[in-house]
């Protein structure tokens, strides 16, 4: 499915032995993951497996109890704003837009690390300031056109329909000119058409030379999109490999459905389960209550 041939194969992200403990609970246990440039990597796992926690460790929102995260060879300090300026941008599972800012302003905020006009420059309004503002606006509008929201630049972010809010979050992340984009359930709450469009969008982003690491419960989406998929179960990385490898792995199926009590499942049962899995369209509706209390009535 992925026809793009990537020229170089440098490592963009290298997470080593990342462990995250909350008191007695080990949410992420010794997970290592690499993402190479030009790759789309998927991260799947049942609810509460620790996927979002792993993202938070990567982006510095959590300080991992153990382990390191390196971006293009440099170990990142666990501070979100430094991670972003280094070149990793993310979206959130439960959309976190700046609800009362306009669509354009949201994207402009994403430009923060790539501009440096401070207070003085804002107060004095020299030619440098005006040029930088104009350039930021232009870039932001380009991004809005890219995701197809340019016509809504002046709307308040909170007034966008759900699918567009997710897209806007992606545009905002892209505004920071990342080398790696982390997407946390980008199609949660979307209908099949919107999911298709998001797939296209992710490919387009990859084609711009941005590596993508994506969490998703929609298996069809993941297996269409990803060069590689890692499976996280109860904080541990169970399998990693191409779509085919992961799809064929019994442990993955067992992890999603629980280990049967009486004997191992027959082959036809596994096939059935996989078919059901693939047909599943809105898996996020059963997202873990701890992270997602949003009601999905807005689609």
């Amino acid at each position: 499915m992925t026809t793009m041939t990537t020229t170089t194969n440098t490592t963009v992200l290298e997470a080593k032995d990342v462990t995250m403990r909350f008191g007695g609970l080990t949410a992420v246990r010794s997970v290592g993951l690499t993402v190479n440039s030009g790759e789309i990597v998927g991260l799947i796992g049942p609810n509460g497996a620790g996927k979002t926690t792993f993202f938070n460790c990567l982006t510095g929102l959590y300080v991992p109890t153990e382990g390191t995260v390196a971006y293009k060879g440099t170990v990142l300090p666990p501070k979100p704003h430094l991670v972003t300026s280094a070149g990793i941008a993310r979206t959130f599972q439960n959309i976190r837009l700046f609800a009362n800012m306009t669509v354009l302003e949201n994207v402009l905020v994403g430009r923060h690390t790539r501009t440096k006009e401070g207070l003085w420059s804002a107060l004095l309004r020299g030619p440098g300031f005006k040029k930088a503002e104009a350039a930021s606006h232009e870039r932001a509008m380009e991004l809005l056109e890219f995701i197809g929201l340019a016509h809504k630049a002046d709307h308040l972010a909170r007034n966008l329909p759900y699918g567009e809010q997710r897209k806007l979050e992606i545009a905002r992340a892209l505004a920071s000119e990342p080398g790696l984009l982390l997407l946390d359930e980008p199609t949660a709450g979307m209908n099949p058409q919107e999911t298709r469009a998001t797939e296209e969008l992710v490919f387009a982003i990859r084609d711009q030379g941005i590596a993508v690491l994506v969490i998703e419960h929609d298996m069809r989406f993941i297996f269409n999109l990803c060069d590689r998929v890692a499976v996280l179960v109860q904080g541990e990385k169970l399998v990693e490999g191409t779509s085919d490898v992961v799809q064929a792995d019994e442990r993955v199926v067992a992890a999603y459905l629980g280990t049967p009590f009486e004997g191992a499942p027959g082959d036809e049962e596994v096939a059935e389960v996989e078919a059901a899995e693939a047909a599943q369209e809105t898996p996020s509706a059963k997202a873990a209550p701890s992270t997602d209390t949003r009601t999905e009535d807005d689609q």
Partner: peptide, 17 residues
């Protein structure tokens, strides 16, 4: 804009750099 962003959602703002 950074002020308003921090006011709106500080976590998201820091994640935006």
């Amino acid at each position: 804009r950074a002020w308003v962003a921090v006011r709106e959602d500080e976590t998201a703002a820091t994640a935006m750099g």
